[in-house]
């Protein structure tokens, strides 16, 4: 006679959680896995590429300027004889650093403000939503151009003065000015969508019975926000962050393309595309290489974002 299972271990189906279920759904989605694969390869290139590249991104070979792709130079060389492959890999690092830092700052600001607006409501909500509306109503590009154009020169001059006064080598690297201004201005235009998303989530979660139950346990507002509200709002946020990373990379390229992003000689896909565009009829590889990688990265994040959306909100899809 068959024994009747009695312990939970025997009775249960394999242990599942919301996250594990979502992971299984994600793995079954081929496009999402392709996107994840692309992102992992690019992230690897960003992290370790600079140690593996055959050439330094600054070293010039003036005898081999504008060379077509070959085994020695996989993506050819540019007008100064610099290896384009190495520069694209360095550009990957720039793109990832900018995308991750900008998204991290934007998400932190967005989640904090959105959660407070949604949870407390009232005048706080009105002020925060007014702030997001104002920020979103200013054209993104214009704001970034204004910030960079008006602050970059004075800040660089100040750094120069500090260097002359203190001889501290830190102040000699004006690249920090670039990065701080790029991070700051891009984060400034990127946070409002996160704030709106989180606010909407929190508004719906705030009135759920388990929040009242948590309050009836005497937990503090901070604990309720951090452990009950935000974790339940995080699904749509993950989707949004994945898409946001791709968007941030495109933004960084766009600003570099326009000359308000990361400045040469630091390689950035955007300024490589900008340089390549001027000579593309003669040397198409100078445009094709960075543009293709930028396209690939965008597609990768977009596929992963879609896959995550389907995995985390199974009811909404199909």
């Amino acid at each position: 006679m068959a024994t009747i299972p009695m312990t939970p271990a025997e009775l249960d189906e394999p242990k599942t959680s919301l996250w594990r279920d979502a992971w299984y759904r994600l793995v079954r989605n081929k496009l999402a896995i392709f996107g994840l694969f692309v992102i992992i390869v690019l992230a690897f290139a960003a992290a370790f590429g600079p140690y593996l590249t055959p050439y330094d991104f600054l070293s010039q070979d003036l005898d081999a300027r504008n060379a077509a792709p070959s085994w020695a130079h996989l993506f050819g060389t540019d007008d100064l004889g610099r290896d384009v492959f190495s520069r694209v890999i360095y550009g990957t690092r720039t793109a990832f650093v900018v995308a991750i830092v900008v998204t991290a700052i934007a998400v932190t600001i967005g989640v904090a403000l959105g959660a407070m607006a949604g949870f407390f409501g009232g005048w706080l909500d009105r002020i925060i939503m007014w702030l997001t509306d104002v920020t979103m109503s200013v054209p993104n590009l214009l704001l970034v151009v204004v910030i960079n154009a008006s602050l970059k020169a004075p800040l660089a001059a100040w750094m120069e003065a500090q260097y002359m006064a203190t001889l501290n080598p830190f102040f000699r690297e004006t690249i920090w000015v670039d990065f701080i201004l790029v991070f700051g201005s891009m984060a400034l235009i990127s946070w409002p969508p996160y704030a709106r998303l989180v606010r909407a989530q929190v508004l719906s979660i705030r009135s759920r019975p388990y929040i009242t139950a948590a309050r009836a346990l005497g937990l503090t507002t901070r604990i309720i926000l951090m452990r009950y509200v935000v974790p339940n709002a995080v699904g749509p946020l993950i989707v949004s962050v994945s898409a946001g990373l791709g968007t941030a990379m495109v933004l960084e390229s766009a600003f570099s393309f326009l000359g308000v992003g990361v400045n040469p000689p630091t390689p950035s896909w955007g300024n490589m595309i900008s340089d390549g565009l001027r000579v593309w009829q003669h040397y198409p590889h100078l445009l094709a290489a960075p543009a293709a990688v930028l396209g690939l990265a965008t597609v990768g994040f977009s596929f992963l974002g879609d896959g995550l959306n389907d995995a985390l909100n199974p009811r909404g899809s199909k």
């Binding site: 919301l18 759920r208 019975p209 388990y210 009242t212 139950a213 948590a214 309050r215 009836a216 346990l217 005497g218 937990l219 503090t220 452990r227 009950y228 974790p231 339940n232």
Partner: peptide, 22 residues
């Protein structure tokens, strides 16, 4: 806050939605 959950326990109507799902 010390009374809530400490000296007074509360059991709510709908056990399906009164526990934190995550």
């Amino acid at each position: 806050r010390k009374v809530r959950g400490g000296q007074v326990g509360f059991v709510f109507q709908d056990p399906m939605t009164s526990l934190n799902p995550v």
